Amino acid sequence: MHRPGGYMHRDLKPDNLLVTKGGELIKIADFGQAREIKSKSPCSDYVTTRMYRAPEVLLNSVSYTCSVDMWAVGAIMAELYSFRPLFPGKNRADQLYKICSVIGSPTYESWAEGIQLANWCGYKFPQVHPYGLSTMIPSASHEAIDLIKSLCSWDPKKRPTAMEALQHPYFAPDMCALAETTSSAKSQQRIYPNQTFSGAKPFGDFLPCRQYYK
């Protein structure tokens, strides 16, 4: 999808990932907000379901890239471990607060462009002590945490491309037999206890990703 001449999906979320009942095949669905990679700016700043929306889009950037999809992939990956959204914000400000609460607030060293975007739209990043991804998803392996951290980097330039992500040690042959998340791990992850979701209806032989892991 991200190859030259391809598309930014701009609305990746569990409900748009269709999984066969046996789990052998996954398809990406709903290209209603997709945009050609080669298309010129400005891009709409109201794309992607909020909980999977990259911070640069939350800060009204209109010149983003395919990295917005990679942020969403990181959030989805974390959700597959925890059974709940990683950043369940109720509005833009709350969404950014949730992100800061998990990975820490950006600095000029980590994302100077983001600080400028925030200044332009009158937003000030909160200074909070982050929970950390390992705390949020204790069932995830070290390799999984490292990949999610890179995908959910504040600076979009520091996020791996899809092809780069596939070279991560998480996908090495000896990592294929990962331990499944246990029910006890699921019950321990209650940092956002009031967040609930309803499943979507099956689509042929495929189920939306969220319904699949329910």
Rank of each mutant, 00 (worst) to 15 (best):
Q116W: 08
P130D: 02
A93H: 12
I103M: 13
A140V: 10
D94G: 15
W154G: 07
Y64P: 01
K90V: 14
S134M: 10
A78H: 07
V68D: 05
A72G: 13
W120M: 00
L151Q: 07
T107Y: 09
L151V: 13
A78F: 08
R53T: 05
K124W: 00
S150F: 03
P130V: 00
I145W: 03
T107N: 13
C121M: 15
Q95D: 06
N91K: 09
I148K: 00
G74R: 06
I137S: 00
V73R: 00
S105H: 09
E56A: 01
M70F: 09
Q116V: 15
N91D: 15
A93Y: 13
V73D: 11
S67F: 00
Y81T: 02
N119V: 12
F87C: 09
I137F: 02
V68L: 00
N60C: 06
I99A: 04
A72W: 05
S82Q: 11
S110V: 14
C152G: 04
P138Y: 11
D69L: 09
W154D: 12
E113M: 09
D146Q: 06
M77N: 05
Y52H: 05
A144F: 08
H142A: 04
P55R: 06
P88V: 14
I148D: 14
H129C: 07
S67W: 06
K149F: 01
Y64K: 11
V102T: 11
L151F: 06
L86E: 04
K149A: 07
L147F: 12
A72L: 09
Y108P: 01
H142S: 11
R84P: 08
L80C: 13
V128L: 14
Y81V: 12
K124A: 01
Q95M: 13
H129I: 11
F83V: 01
Q95R: 04
L58K: 00
Y123L: 03
I103V: 15
Q95E: 07
V62S: 15
A144D: 08
A112Q: 15
W111I: 04
C152A: 03
S63W: 15
S139R: 04
R92F: 15
V62E: 13
A112P: 02
E109F: 14
S141T: 15
S141M: 06
M136V: 00
P55Q: 13
G114E: 04
C121F: 03
L147M: 01
H142P: 00
I137Y: 04
G104H: 13
L59I: 11
E113H: 11
H129M: 04
W71Q: 04
S153T: 15
A118V: 06
Y64E: 01
S153K: 06
S134H: 07
S141E: 10
T65K: 10
S63M: 04
T135S: 02
N91L: 02
A75S: 15
I115A: 08
A72M: 04
A112V: 12
S105D: 03
E143N: 12
S141N: 03
G74H: 03
Y131P: 02
Q127A: 05
P130H: 00
C100R: 02
C100E: 10
E113Y: 09
P130G: 05
Y123Q: 01
P85R: 00
Y123R: 06
S110D: 10
E109N: 10
V73K: 03
E79K: 06
E56Y: 02
S101P: 09
S150C: 06
Q95V: 09
I103E: 08
S101G: 07
K124D: 07
M70W: 14
D146E: 11
K124F: 04
L59V: 07
A54S: 09
